[in-house]
Computed example of a mutant assay.
Amino acid sequence: MKRPFIIFYATIVYALAQLFWWGYRLVELQPQRTSMVLSEGSMFLIVFALGAWSLHKSVNKERRLHEQKKNFLLSVTHELKSPLASIKLYLQTIAKRDLDRAQVKNFIEKCLLDVERLDDFVENMLLASKIENSSYTFPKESFSLSGLVDNVVNRLQINKCDMNQQLINAEIEPKLEITGDKFALTSVVTNLIENAIKYSKPCDEVGVKLFRKDDTIYLQVADKGIGIADHEKQRIFDRFYRVGSEETRNTKGTGLGLYIVKTVLDKHQADIVVKDNKPAGSVFEVAFN
Rank of each mutant, 00 (worst) to 15 (best):
K105D: 13
D150F: 07
N133D: 09
V59L: 15
I12S: 07
W21F: 14
H56I: 03
Q234I: 03
V273I: 13
E62W: 09
Q30N: 03
K275W: 05
L84Y: 05
G180E: 08
I6P: 02
C111L: 01
K278C: 06
V208G: 01
T137R: 14
D120Q: 13
Y199N: 06
A102L: 10
Q157M: 14
L16V: 15
K209S: 07
L55I: 08
F107C: 14
Q220L: 00
G207E: 09
K2S: 04
V122S: 11
S245I: 11
E123M: 14
E109P: 07
L99I: 10
N124K: 14
K275Y: 14
E109G: 11
F138I: 04
L26G: 02
E132H: 09
R117G: 11
F237P: 05
N71R: 14
G207I: 15
D238V: 01
H56A: 00
H231E: 13
V221S: 04
K252I: 04
E232F: 10
Q30S: 03
S245E: 02
F48I: 06
P31D: 03
L265I: 11
E173I: 02
K61S: 11
K81Y: 09
A10L: 15
N133E: 10
V221I: 05
S82M: 15
K252R: 03
E40C: 08
K69C: 14
L113N: 14
L99Y: 08
L45W: 07
N164W: 11
I12G: 01
K130C: 07
S82D: 06
K175Q: 15
V115E: 13
V208N: 01
L118V: 10
L29D: 04
L210G: 02
V264C: 02
G51S: 05
A95F: 11
L91M: 12
L29N: 05
V37N: 04
G244I: 01
A270W: 00
T263H: 06
K262M: 03
P279N: 04
P279K: 09
G207Q: 12
N169P: 03
I197S: 02
M36Q: 10
L45T: 03
T179F: 00
I172A: 02
I217H: 00
A95Q: 11
T254M: 05
Y136F: 13
F211P: 01
V273N: 15
R25L: 13
I178L: 12
P31F: 09
A270V: 07
S82N: 14
F138E: 04
K233F: 00
K224C: 05
L156V: 06
Y136N: 02
L156S: 06
D215P: 03
C111Q: 05
M125T: 11
L156H: 10
H231Q: 12
D114S: 13
F72K: 07
M125R: 07
F44H: 09
S146E: 01
L91V: 15
N159Q: 12
L265W: 04
L112N: 11
R235H: 14
H231I: 11
L91E: 14
E67T: 13
I7S: 00
T190W: 06
L89D: 13
A287R: 10
S135R: 02
D238F: 04
R117A: 08
S35R: 03
K81D: 13
K278D: 09
M1Y: 06
F44V: 10
N250Y: 08
